[in-house]
Write a protein that binds this DNA or RNA. Sequence first.
DNA 1: TTGCAAACATGAGGATTACTCATATTAAGA
DNA 2: TCTTAATATGAGTAATCCTCATGTTTGCAA
Lengths: 212, 212
Amino acid sequence: MQGRVAAKLDQEIAMPRRAPTQQRSRERVERMLAAAAALIAEQGSDAMRMGEVAERAGVSIGSLYQFFPDKRAIVWALAERYTAESQACISAALKDVSDAEGLKQAFSELVDIYYGMFLAEPVMRDIWSGTQADKALRELELADSRANARFLVAVLKRLRPGADTVAMETAALLVWQMGEAVMRLAISVDREEGDRLVAAYKRMALRELVEG
Amino acid sequence: MQGRVAAKLDQEIAMPRRAPTQQRSRERVERMLAAAAALIAEQGSDAMRMGEVAERAGVSIGSLYQFFPDKRAIVWALAERYTAESQACISAALKDVSDAEGLKQAFSELVDIYYGMFLAEPVMRDIWSGTQADKALRELELADSRANARFLVAVLKRLRPGADTVAMETAALLVWQMGEAVMRLAISVDREEGDRLVAAYKRMALRELVEG
DNA sequence: TTGCAAACATGAGGATTACTCATATTAAGA
DNA sequence: TCTTAATATGAGTAATCCTCATGTTTGCAA
């Protein structure tokens, strides 16, 4: 992304400049996000132009900047929604796992769901592909991975009560971040190889999680 | 990165617009790359300004564009040098490996060297952190991973002559790309956790490579 | 109902920056 | 020495993010 924006060396977390309080403005903010998502789906977030977002949302450029301090903040807001959704999903899937077989099943399903989302959701794919270049997004992804790792650690503690907690936390975080990397890789090669890579990752991660 | 450049939807591979043939211009190109590297080390490649690169290299902005079609091309040229260097290093380290113990030792050393480079080389760190956002760089990294994976596969074939080649290739590529991801993660958390993550990755990858 | 403050809306314009191009200069071969 | 291709220059172009002065609407208390 972004000329001016990137020049700012202090990449502070991008938050809404002003939270919309009225019904009218809340709807307008929704339209802005929807327009941004559509444009990202069409051309990618780098090619997304603020003027185009405003136009498509039916608002002025000024209104856009009333609620989003800069371009990154829009992408961040979309990313945050995705992480919130997926965290809920992951938490639910792992909540009741109590044995190795259950973990295998749940983890395998989660990976498939994630892979499917990466394949099908251009917006998500674009955002998480560009993650590494943006500090705020990188931090969001890391926080997300840590949260997901905690769900995994909870399961692991039930499976292997005796094992070292720090080692478990390390393994869980590793497994999760590797997963993100594998997804990015898998969607950038042809489908067949992508499938193989995801399957291999699944096997590898499960071995690590189950056997320690 | 960057306004105009990013807007170009056809992200063709960035190659020197004109190869310097005279001694004079070759030296100037070297100065440009050195200036770019210095600026990236200081502020990161996003904050690197073309005008600043030219000024620091002691050339005009026009000369810069004589040899590099755009900003990405400069970063790409630097990245390419790093991959060429590291590939030579990896090839050498794996060339004479013939048993599991040797693989463990060689792989472990390579990971340590890589990790050390990520920690110590701000330019390399910056470039590979931003990799995902730039198609040309992503392709370079993938090509690099594939090349390195081939070295690994050669070793694996010696270790386990009977095993499935495609599975080996998948595992090797996976291990390598995961390694890149782990390095990026490791340098973005505190040193202690980073060390733990790298160690866990090493163990995990070796188990996959040795045991299949 | 009315008045008022705060929230919201607007878009022309400022500022930055990647990149071009017409022109001038230098090197290399005939 | 002459000619041509390579190289050098930097003021100017275009694209785009973001600001801000000004106008409008909403919620609410008197």
